[in-house]
Design a protein around this nucleic acid. Structure first.
Lengths: 184, 184
DNA sequence: CGCCCCATGTAAGACGTTACATGATTGA
DNA sequence: TCAATCATGTAACGTCTTACATGGGGCG
């Protein structure tokens, strides 16, 4: 079968962080709990096993640091294999499933895209996302039309909020593409 | 400890659907796969165990339907206890964690709020959400300012997209509140 | 001395994914 | 009769949550 080694979202989040700058498990936890990446779990029961999995898969390598006066910490860096996997994950074609599974993972891919794969990859992702959204939103509008009669008011409004936020994201893709087109 | 019986997101999604209209497991699956609720798993390995859990907790009750010519199906309805639990879940105070865990669950609560708990509950949720967002967004802006120097461009843009979508949602809360204020 | 932060881990249990399995009914 | 759809389930596996556990270092 050899599909061994599927990496979950949390794994890519960690991998991407470590790629930007080598981190200990504790560092990763602090980032997840203190920044906009709060949606990823900062619990030790999630982070440390995830790190060990990534290490076992050869994506990262940990080295123990015994600085004077400091407690023992293990700092991880991304290996060549991990770097390649990050690039693959980022450049992977954008599917319908990526959109209706919520866009959290797509945004994570985009966030890491430029330092990992270069501006071309970022642009690629942005235009693919823009195209997906363009064919996704009309379907939601149809559902809203169809639901006018049967859905409760709060349900319709919730659906509208979804549509609005997709449209908002569409505008953002244009804005971001303009930035990439402008000055390189 | 007796915390027994915590219900996951998927459970509430199912409970809310069944409240609107009694459903079989198959019905639930079709709704999850065919509508804007695609983000919830429609796999039998998720749905049927979840239904049995809810039934064991006394939230729903299943009755086998043997309509002429049709295959056996088990249709579930919400019990009084399930209804009460839905109301509790919806009216529960909105925490910081609800916001930074992504707003999917909050929107689900809102979607069901009016038929389950009445327009007052919907308004309550909307204003709480508006308030939360108002104190949440400035923090993200600060992070963006702070990250100007260190974050890669795509990372900054990703953060901006998050900020924008929160702002978009803020406007939506105003829009929705206006509707509820307008004609009751 | 006691408390909090650094830093790492483990164990039990719940949940979801994937894949497999069954069987009746409807329509081509 | 063959395929698709209706309809329900189970088993193995992986991951996350929650809670507990450990210990050094700095500070008041």
């Amino acid at each position: 079968m050899r599909t061994m080694g599927k990496i979950p979202s949390l794994g890519y989040a960690i991998l991407g962080l470590i790629q930007q700058k080598p981190c200990s498990g504790y560092d990763v936890r602090k980032i997840f709990s203190g920044t906009a990446m709060k949606s990823y779990s900062d619990s030790p029961g999630a982070i440390y096993p995830a790190l060990r999995r990534l290490e076992k898969q050869g994506m990262i390598r940990g080295r123990i640091q015994q600085g004077a006066g400091l407690r023992r910490r293990q700092v991880f860096s991304v290996t060549a294999k991990g770097s390649a996997e990050l690039r693959r994950w980022i450049s992977q074609p954008l599917t319908r499933g990526d959109v209706d599974g919520g866009l959290k993972e797509v945004m994570l891919r985009f966030a890491f895209s430029e330092p990992v794969s270069g501006a071309d990859a970022s642009i690629q992702l942005l235009s693919a996302l823009r195209a997906q959204l363009e064919e996704y939103v009309p379907g939601l509008r149809l559902q809203l039309e169809a639901g006018k009669a049967v859905m409760p008011r709060s349900g319709r409004l919730a659906l509208e909020s979804g549509i609005r936020s997709f449209e908002c994201l569409q505008e953002w893709t244009k804005y971001a593409l303009a930035i990439y087109a402008g000055k390189e």
